[in-house]
Amino acid sequence: MKQLSIRVQQIKPSATLAITAKAAQMRAAGRSVISLSVGEPDFETPQSAREAGIAAINSGFTRYTDVAGIPELRQAIADKFSRDHGLEYSASDILVSSGGKQCIFNFLMAVMDPGERAIIPAPYWVSYPDMVKLTEGIPVIVPTTAENHFKVTAEQIEKVICHRCKVLFLNSPSNPTGMVYTAEELVAIGDVVRRHPDLLVATDDMYEKIIFDGRKFATFAEVNPDLKERTVTFNGVSKAYCMTGWRIGYCAGSSALIKAMAKIQGQSTSNPNSIAQKAALAALTGPTHALDEMVRTYEQRRAWLVSAINAIGGMHAIMPDGAFYVFPSVEGLIGKTTASGVTLADDVVFCEWLLEEAGVALVPGTEFGAPGFVRFSYAVSQATLEDAVSRIADAVKTLK
């Protein structure tokens, strides 16, 4: 279609959504399919948030709000940063958007000029590179290894920085690996950033509340307070409070940058959903017992799943620190032949075969910039996980 822009032709659809759609088609055709591809908690939105949403509707809170979000929600988010990380922001330093993805897109639109570069450690969340491309920026992908727990080092970042680098992405706990940066690792990265005064840090903390083994979460600006003005911290209520469909994300940064990002938002979507903002306010200021129970459950599923995956020949997983993903290598299965004579050339073909053969949907690591791996989401019941792993193990046994 000649009318389509070069910009839109450079990006690809979300792999996770595409696989989910394929699984839905198979179910509609009568197939039994287990999807471990979606990054969505399998718990309910907290009761306090649901009630606040209903109350907002019943009270007529259904009009436009401030573009950047209602003042009381922005203040609650500022209070959250102070309480959790000792970071002091005013309400004017906070932007509320229609999901964390819109926050990141607003940020990139506000800071990136054509030809400027964004450093993205791989494995990465699938949307980072394509959002950079939409701003006519250039993604600079920095591969990491399982041996280093999929975490980029300060030395790796130093090697790729040039005068055109504008943004460094960090994601902890990581989607897709579940790995968490320690405070010491973030301090070392801060030492590199400090030497490059034009570099901004975009830290995606969406999974910060889902963390295991008694770890203490640290965010970049918390351990590098002198770099706070050059850092934008992204978060939201989707994962911790099981509110994916409510579409509320938020971020904190310098007031000048937040104002610029709000200007972008004002000319694209305007304010986030008024009802969802009230629900998010209740979630952020309400009881946390549901969150605590969810984290305990995920911690148990994680341990079981890693052990079960490692019992399958040709697959190997390391223990993640947080989120609800396991990211095992399937290198031991690449090159094998299926019963129908198809060679599993790579992780993409492996996932396609597994969906057809076993009715289990996973996301290939290639989509995250990590060929030879696959992503499991364990945001499903234990019984569903056990069924899925049993199907995978049986299917793998048929390979030659």
Rank of each mutant, 00 (worst) to 15 (best):
Q156W: 02
P139G: 07
V140P: 06
N106G: 00
Y207G: 01
C103I: 03
P121L: 05
K209G: 09
P114R: 11
T182D: 07
I138G: 00
N106P: 02
I189P: 06
E185K: 11
R117S: 08
T182Q: 00
Y181G: 09
V126K: 05
S172K: 00
H163R: 12
Y207P: 00
S127F: 12
I120T: 05
V201A: 09
Y181M: 15
F169T: 04
M109A: 07
V132F: 05
S174A: 15
V192L: 09
D204M: 11
S174M: 11
E208Y: 10
I157P: 00
E208R: 14
C103A: 15
V160I: 15
P139C: 09
L170H: 06
Y128P: 05
I210S: 01
M109R: 11
T182P: 01
D191C: 10
E158V: 09
T135C: 15
D205W: 09
I189M: 09
P173S: 07
C162S: 15
I157N: 03
T145E: 02
V167L: 09
E208I: 04
V180E: 02
I161H: 02
V152I: 15
I141E: 09
L134P: 03
R195F: 02
K151T: 05
G137N: 11
T135Q: 10
E158I: 10
V187P: 05
P129T: 03
N148T: 15
I104P: 01
M206H: 01
K209W: 11
S174Q: 13
V126P: 00
V187N: 06
V180N: 05
N175V: 06
A202H: 05
R194A: 11
A154V: 01
L186P: 12
I120V: 09
L134Y: 06
G178Y: 05
Y124N: 06
K133Y: 03
K133G: 02
V111N: 06
Y181K: 12
I138L: 10
I141K: 07
D113A: 12
V167G: 04
P121A: 04
P129K: 06
A188D: 12
I141R: 07
Q102V: 15
W125C: 08
I119F: 12
M206E: 08
I120H: 00
H163A: 14
L134H: 05
H149M: 07
D205P: 00
V160N: 06
L170E: 04
V160K: 02
F150L: 00
E184K: 15
V126Y: 03
E184S: 13
L134R: 14
I157M: 03
T145K: 08
P197R: 13
D198N: 10
E147R: 15
L170A: 04
V193H: 10
V126R: 07
D113L: 14
M131G: 01
A202S: 13
E116G: 05
K159E: 13
P129I: 04
L170W: 11
A183G: 15
I161N: 01
A122Q: 07
G190A: 10
A110K: 08
E136D: 14
V152G: 00
L170C: 06
E136W: 10
